[in-house]
């Protein structure tokens, strides 16, 4: 691991990504201290007489949204939504994916075939339609949105872990453990899983960017986190009808989503290179 860290430190792009993630996480945690206003308060003076939002100025740094709320404060709190969902949903997805992938890979046989055919099926499913349908059934809240995303996103991880486990099973030390009479769940936990950790770590990082994007997309379609909880995608959804006259309402949250997704992507990529030099430069 120490070796890996050294390699990671040399990857400047990934390092910048990590710094960005750290900064945004801090901003999210300390949002109540940083935010100039209550993100939920609809200010009377936050709207013009005709009901249009206010552009950025000294009073509202990034302007107001269509309900007269301070956009900057909402963006800060929106970071919480994005990160919580991003991390929770992806952790769940990686967990499900690893469980299915490792089981299928190790046990093989009918169970393995069944699981892998099921992932084939999920791959053929238009993921966004699936998420929309699930969101309609489960009446979205923060955790439900996370669950929906996890249910859609575990497949990729399952496939990668499956391939890695298949490769591991052939190795001698597994054979040895099996010969020693260890039960398969134990072998899986003690001997197989530790070797999968680098892959899980990489997918856990890369996956967050996918999750953040999916959350934003669901919110943009009006089926994500419920209002008035601030969410970057949700801010754009609410402002869409106004964006030609108030483009900042799309621009700022849009950039936020992009930056967070990008940061997790480059860090994940850096991790992959660092943890597995043989894979360096491959995808």
């Amino acid at each position: 691991m120490g070796e890996a860290w050294k390699r990671f430190k040399k990857d400047r792009v990934a390092l910048v990504g990590a710094i960005i993630i750290a900064t945004i996480s801090l901003a999210a945690v300390f949002a109540p201290l940083i935010a100039p206003y209550d993100p939920f308060e609809q200010f009377f003076e936050g709207l013009t007489i005709e009901g249009a939002p206010r552009p950025p100025d000294g009073e509202f740094w990034l302007g107001t949204d269509l309900l007269g709320r301070d956009l900057f404060s909402r963006l800060l709190y929106g970071a919480r939504t994005s990160l919580i969902i991003g991390i929770a949903a992806n952790a769940a997805a990686v967990l499900i994916g690893t469980a299915f992938g490792a089981t299928a890979g190790y046990v093989g046989g009918w169970v393995g075939i069944a699981i892998m055919r099921f992932t084939d099926l999920m791959m053929a499913f238009p993921a966004l339609l699936l998420a929309i349908a699930l969101a309609a059934i489960l009446k979205p809240s923060l955790w439900i949105v996370a669950l929906v995303i996890a249910l859609v996103n575990w497949v990729q991880t399952a496939r990668v872990i499956y391939t890695q486990t298949r490769a591991l099973v052939e190795r001698e030390f597994i054979e040895a453990a099996r010969a020693a009479g260890a039960a398969w769940p134990r072998i899986l936990m003690v001997h197989v899983l530790p070797h999968l950790v680098p892959h899980i770590l990489v997918w856990a990082t890369l996956g967050i960017s996918v999750t953040v994007l999916l959350e934003a997309t669901l919110s943009f379609l009006g089926i994500g986190v419920q209002p008035p909880t601030p969410s970057w995608g949700g801010i754009i959804f609410e402002s869409q009808s106004y964006f030609l006259s108030a483009p900042w309402l799309v621009f700022f949250p849009g950039i936020s989503i992009l930056v967070v997704a990008l940061a997790f992507n480059v860090v994940g990529d850096g991790l992959r290179d660092a943890l597995d030099p043989t894979q360096r430069g491959r995808d």
Binding site: F40, L66, E238, Q240, S241
Partner: peptide
């Protein structure tokens, strides 16, 4: 669909 969530938030406040 817009503007209903916005109206709901105004009522909520």
């Amino acid at each position: 669909t817009d503007p209903n969530p916005r109206i709901a938030q105004s009522i909520q406040q």
